[in-house]
Amino acid sequence: MSIQHFRVALIPFFAAFCLPVFAHPETLVKVKDAEDQLGARVGYIELDLNSGKILESFRPEERFPMMSTFKVLLCGAVLSRVDAGQEQLGRRIHYSQNDLVKYSPVTEKHLTDGMTVRELCSAAITMSDNTAANLLLTTIGGPKELTAFLHNMGDHVTRLDRWEPELNEAIPNDERDTTMPAAMATTLRKLLTGELLTLASRQQLIDWMEADKVAGPLLRSALPAGWFIADKSGASERGSRGIIAALGPDGKPSRIVVIYTTGSQATMDERNRQIAEIGASLIKHW
Rank of each mutant, 00 (worst) to 15 (best):
S221A: 13
M153N: 08
R271T: 13
L74V: 06
H5A: 12
I140F: 07
P224E: 02
A40I: 06
D174L: 03
Q97A: 15
Y95H: 05
L160R: 01
I140V: 13
M66T: 03
L79A: 01
T138I: 10
S57N: 06
N173S: 12
S2G: 09
T107S: 10
K213N: 08
L137C: 03
Y103M: 15
G39D: 11
E87T: 05
M1I: 08
G216A: 10
S221Q: 12
E210T: 09
E195K: 11
A276L: 07
G52S: 04
L160T: 06
D113E: 14
L89S: 04
A77V: 10
D99E: 15
L282S: 01
A23V: 12
H5R: 12
G85Q: 12
S221E: 09
A211T: 06
I3K: 15
P181L: 00
V21L: 08
D250T: 07
S240T: 06
P253V: 05
I275L: 09
E210Q: 11
F13I: 08
E277S: 10
Q86A: 13
L137E: 01
S68N: 00
T126V: 08
D174E: 08
T186M: 15
L73V: 09
L150V: 10
G85E: 10
P12R: 04
G239W: 02
F70C: 04
G242T: 01
D269K: 12
R255C: 01
D161E: 05
F64L: 00
E119V: 01
T178D: 01
I283Y: 10
P253T: 04
G39V: 08
D250Q: 14
S57G: 09
M115I: 06
D129A: 00
P12G: 13
S68A: 00
H24P: 07
T179V: 01
E277Q: 08
T147A: 03
I125L: 12
A133P: 00
S281A: 15
T198C: 10
P65K: 05
T69H: 04
P12F: 12
K32R: 09
H5T: 14
R59Q: 05
T187S: 12
I256M: 03
F149E: 05
R41V: 06
R255V: 13
D99Y: 08
L223V: 13
Q204R: 09
G216E: 08
A215H: 03
P60T: 07
A235C: 03
P224F: 00
L19F: 15
L197T: 02
I206R: 10
P65D: 02
I278T: 00
S80M: 11
E61N: 15
A222K: 15
N272K: 01
K284E: 13
R220G: 02
G279A: 12
E270A: 10
Q265L: 11
L135C: 04
G194V: 06
L135R: 02
T267N: 13
T198A: 10
L223S: 02
D207S: 14
M115T: 02
P172C: 11
L188C: 06
R176L: 08
P253I: 06
M66L: 14
L38M: 07
T138Y: 11
G216W: 07
G216Q: 11
A200S: 14
E277K: 08
A40P: 02
G194S: 13
K252A: 12
A170S: 13
R220K: 02
I140N: 00
R59H: 06
I125D: 01
D155I: 07
A124G: 04
I3N: 13
M66S: 01
A222Q: 14
I93S: 01
I93E: 02
I3V: 09
Q204V: 12
Q88E: 13
G52V: 02
L79G: 01
N98T: 14
T178E: 01
R118S: 15
Y103V: 07
A200Y: 10
K213T: 08
P65S: 05
F6H: 10
L188R: 00
T186R: 14
T126I: 07
P224H: 02
F13S: 10
V82D: 03
K144V: 12
K284L: 11
P224C: 01
D99G: 05
S264D: 05
E61S: 13
R241S: 08
A40V: 08
L135Y: 01
T158N: 00
V78Y: 12
Q97T: 15
G43R: 00
D250A: 13
V82S: 07
P12D: 06
I244F: 01
K284T: 11
E237L: 11
F14C: 11
A133T: 07
A84V: 12
N98M: 15
G239V: 02
D269Y: 09
D174T: 04
P253N: 05
D174G: 05
L135F: 04
G251D: 08
G43I: 00
A222T: 12
H94G: 08
P253C: 06
Y260C: 01
D231Y: 03
S254V: 10
E166P: 02
D83G: 03
L136M: 07
Q204H: 10
P217I: 04
L10H: 06
I243L: 09
M180R: 10
L223P: 00
T187D: 12
D99A: 11
V8L: 15
L73S: 06
P25Y: 11
D250C: 13
S57D: 05
I243N: 00
N50R: 15
L282F: 03
P65F: 02
K252W: 07
L19V: 15
S57Q: 14
T267I: 06
D83K: 01
W163R: 07
K53W: 07
F228K: 03
E210A: 10
L49F: 10
S264G: 15
D212N: 11
V106C: 09
H151R: 15
